[in-house]
Design a protein around this nucleic acid. Structure first.
Lengths: 354, 354
DNA sequence: TTGAAAGCGCTAACAC
DNA sequence: GTGTTAGCGCTTTCAA
């Protein structure tokens, strides 16, 4: 395929249209966009001229410059796209964002934080940004963005000055789940966490994890459990996937002597992976092992189980972020929003058997 | 609407920096960007001035206008995000695109084709566009885009003049799978298709489907099967998901009298759904029912099966699309690319039992 | 190596 | 209703 019959003929602009229509530039602009006080006759002339010249409408680049708005909202995702989108919870969130942004006529610019895309974050044409899946090391990114003077909304992040937070009750919700287990008589409880650091280091949770962990959501959820079971141990999964959960499950369950009677997983995918591992090891869920997830996404392949989990309003979170961005762009005052999870008891938890 | 209320002090621009540094605008530009012949002393002065003023770097909007490039590649997705990203194959493709685009410093602008986002397609600030999951009714979109004079790349689409196609051997690959079944002795074969029209109408495949179907990939794959089994029937799933496949499977398998001995599903998710349905109906796979998928994504929850399927290079497809876009933007000549699927025989297919 | 000037295409503000 | 003007902030000539 040949490249565009390049720049031999420059693409027509509004001035050209105006000239051919025999009107002034601003008139042509109004006439073309269909809004504003223009006589029908003039409008027709302008439209005809545009048609003749093959005018494609106002150049968004020039519009952006003139109006100081590009109509684009950046979405910063920390992981690779394939990692982030492997978990349906993130897709749901993005869908919520897209819903609102789309309705407002804004496009979503996908930005990842990996590698040298720092440059992109510093120079991407956008009016505002939504940070998704944040870690504390986002500080640098935030500094760049703030310097650019654009509204920043973060979904589940530490309090950062100048960043509007869309929160979730990760810690109390996790504590609630932990308390539920304790009331069922469980004492040997373990956690399977989401990655705690940007390298996605996997392995047993080290005692000093608070010193090195950076991933906000994982940290909060883990803290929630330690609020109830101080010093609780467990395993850091390499990502939010069934396979990562399965590997974590094996690591925690393979030594019959020290086997936990309950596992709290930080996502439903991880929980399902843990259940798989238990099945393969001949451990009965929930009789010999209780499993709790987080998110409340509908997962295929879970039958006959119905996961005990914390159901979070992911789409609403996305929508709230989208709305916050739009309102910030309008110059409105926006308050942080906090969402709550709902504890849903399925059939993957049962009283501890002595 | 409301002017940047907070910005009582307009954000500093290069001119301000230049003034404070006591140099000319172009010099400041060169000095700031770090490239070009500028004396170390001048550069230092400029950088210091920028620092003082809190200059955030060149405004991408102005850069876009001046250079005629925004550094953004649009990705047009036909479905809702949540539908499109439910199937890992699409995520893999997007990941391939992101890989190349990211490396080239370009951002990905996500655009959906639903509702009134037509406006967005006509006016989004972008330099080129990649069409994903296309249907024939894209013609209007393509016309809009072509009018805007930007390179257009389509992944799996009909030949459209002026659109560079990144293809997949959907039809011959599907025919190959069909032939394989015939050689195994299957005669009562059915297809579970991806949605054939934009409304995602679900139900039995009508005899006159060619007249109404618009979804390129689904059509091609179905044609491939009819090349081997003319007039083959089946069921149109409502989307590419396990649940949709399960429903289609039930529809095809519930009447023991007319039950097919083999089902070709147009995606692995659909195939897994069909297997689920078979399991629930007490039909043994592969002994009583052979199932073939398409895509070759690794699916959790498939055990103990290993799906017979057509493995397609999704990430490579995405990469190729990304590279094509980049090269078209460079004004290079780019040829269409065609990818091939590899038939992988798993344990979900077996000889027909009479 | 530095400076000056000329727009990129559009729209907001003000005249007529 | 319509015309005129003046930039938005930057980069790319061309000249010194």
């Amino acid at each position: 395929m040949k490249p565009e019959a390049s720049d031999s003929h420059a693409r027509p602009n509004l001035a050209a249209v105006a000239a051919l229509a025999g009107v002034s530039g601003s008139t042509a602009s109004l006439a073309f966009s269909g809004a504003g006080p223009v006589s029908a006759a003039t409008r027709a002339k302008v439209l005809a001229a545009a048609e003749t010249l093959g005018y494609a409408g106002p150049d968004p680049r020039a519009q952006s410059l003139r109006r100081g708005r590009s109509g684009v909202v950046g979405v910063v995702i920390e992981d690779r796209l394939s990692d982030a989108f492997r978990d349906p919870i993130n897709i749901a969130m993005l869908d919520g964002i897209a819903d609102v942004a789309g309705a407002a006529g804004a496009g979503l610019l996908l930005l990842t934080e990996t590698g040298d895309n720092r440059a992109t974050i510093a120079s991407a044409p956008m009016d505002a940004v939504i940070l998704v899946g944040c870690s504390t090391r986002l500080n640098e990114t935030v500094a760049t963005l703030r310097q650019r003077g654009m509204p920043i909304v973060a979904i589940e992040a530490d309090d950062i000055p100048g960043v509007l937070a869309i929160g979730l009750d990760n810690r109390p919700a996790s504590a609630l789940a932990a308390r539920y287990l304790r009331e069922l008589g469980h004492e040997r409880v373990a956690v399977v966490t989401l990655p705690l650091d940007p390298q996605h280091t996997s392995g047993p949770i080290p005692a000093e994890w608070e010193a090195t962990a950076t991933s906000y959501t994982a940290i909060e959820r883990l803290r929630g459990v330690t609020d109830v079971f101080p010093g609780v141990g467990g395993y850091i999964a390499s990502g939010s996937s069934i396979e990562a959960g399965r590997r974590a499950g094996f690591a925690l369950l393979q030594h019959p002597s020290a086997r936990p009677t309950a596992i709290i997983a930080q996502s439903d995918l991880l929980a399902l992976g843990v259940i798989r591992a238990a099945e393969e090891l001949g451990i009965a869920v929930p009789h010999d092992l209780s499993v709790i997830g987080f998110d409340g996404v509908r997962l295929d392949g879970l039958e006959p189980y119905e996961l005990t989990t914390l159901v979070q309003p992911a789409v609403d979170k996305g929508r709230a972020a989208g709305e916050a961005v739009m309102r910030l762009l309008e110059g409105e005052d926006v308050e942080p929003v906090n969402f709550s999870s709902v504890f849903h008891v399925g059939n993957t938890t049962a009283p501890a058997t002595p």
